Amino acid sequence: MTSLFDTAFPLIQAPMAGVQDWRLAAAVCEAGGLGSVPAGMLNAQGLEEQLTQLSAATSKPWNVNFFCHTSPAPDPEGEQRWVDALQPFYDEFAADTSAIANGPSRQPFDEDSAAVLERFRPAVVSFHYGLPDPALLARVKATGARVLSSATTVEEAIWLAENGTDGVIAQGLEAGGHRGHFLSDDLSLQQGTLSLLPQIADAISLPVIAAGGIATPAGVRAARALGASAVQVGTAYLLCPEATTKSVHRQWLQSDRARHTALTTVFSGRPARGMMNRLMDTLGPLPEAAPAFPLAGNAIGPLRAAAEAQGSGDCSPLWAGQFASACRDVSAVEVTRWLAEGWS
């Protein structure tokens, strides 16, 4: 894997939209890992700005990550029902319902993003929720980039191997943030990293990157022993000064609350793992009223801002994996080199 990506260590920093920008990616690259820029919430202009900064900050290889979801049809009635369900919290935190945005907040990979990649030619491009359509994927491959995508089941890994990836990220159930499943929404099919990883490694001949619950050198060693060609780590970087993690999020990560995470659709409409808070507890982690991804996030935005302004994390998507308590408040360089000890 180090020769495939030309990195010193077989370690990928997981792309984490909302808690990082090019600075974290650059620091990981300079430390010998593969830094990643999350593009799921960026338009073409925003993506170009991020990649311009990153390419100026490091000459090492880096990764850009995109979503491949299908944008939902407008659902004004469903979104209003969601606002109604959130109203008690709007009242409590004096949030402004007139500030609720319209339309999807996250866009799937498209021609505009492909054009940006053609100018910057990243070493690696990774995807979440499958792969883009064949024409767009061909444009990515024509840049010379290696292509990765997340699999949460053996069936997804086989599909990815048959449809053009150069490697598969085995995303275990422990992973923070959004689940990458795309062949089925049945959460009962999801497995932990230590059971999913060896099954995928046995099922495909491509390199397999382990992700989910890996936050220490011991976790890296375990993944390697079970057939991983590399590891992808996200949560361990959340307290780094190079991350843009908000103060409320940082406080929770350094408390006992970091031990309790759950999959929830409250904040986006799609299952994602974060620290359990009052909004999740009140509505239930997987409420039926939540609109389709990513429309559920529209009503959350003003509520989150109002609550965080009062020092509360009760209405925020505090994404974190199940080993969030292993987070350390040190530089990204130190975290990367510490994790790399598990591979030596």
Rank of each mutant, 00 (worst) to 15 (best):
T2D: 07
F5L: 14
P10W: 13
I12G: 05
Q13S: 07
M16N: 04
G18F: 02
D21T: 01
D21P: 06
L24G: 10
A25G: 01
A26D: 06
V28P: 01
A31P: 02
A31V: 14
L34G: 08
M41H: 13
M41Q: 13
L47F: 13
L51Y: 00
Q53C: 13
T58Q: 05
S59M: 05
A73D: 14
E79N: 08
R81F: 08
W82A: 04
Q87A: 15
F93I: 00
D96Y: 10
D96V: 06
S98N: 14
S98P: 08
I100Q: 00
N102T: 14
G103Q: 11
S105V: 14
S105W: 11
R106F: 04
D112L: 14
E118G: 14
E118T: 05
F120V: 10
V125W: 05
P132W: 13
D133I: 04
A135D: 11
A138F: 00
R139H: 11
K141C: 07
G144A: 02
L148V: 08
S149E: 12
S149P: 09
A151H: 10
V154M: 03
A157P: 02
I158L: 14
V168K: 00
A170E: 03
A170P: 00
Q171I: 13
A175G: 07
H178S: 04
H178D: 01
R179I: 04
S184Q: 00
S184F: 01
Q191N: 12
G192S: 07
T193W: 06
L194R: 12
A201R: 15
A211S: 15
G212D: 05
G212Q: 07
G213P: 08
G219Y: 00
R221E: 15
A225P: 00
V231L: 08
V231A: 07
V233T: 03
G234R: 06
T235M: 12
E242V: 05
T244N: 10
L253G: 13
L253R: 11
Q254S: 15
R259D: 13
H260S: 14
L263D: 11
T264Q: 10
S268Y: 06
P271C: 09
A272N: 06
R273A: 08
L279H: 11
M280Q: 14
D281S: 15
L283N: 02
E288V: 09
A290K: 03
L295F: 01
L295E: 04
P302H: 03
A305D: 15
A306G: 11
D314I: 01
A324S: 15
C327Y: 01
R328V: 03
D329F: 00
S331T: 15
A332E: 08
V333N: 06
G342L: 03
W343D: 12
W343Q: 10
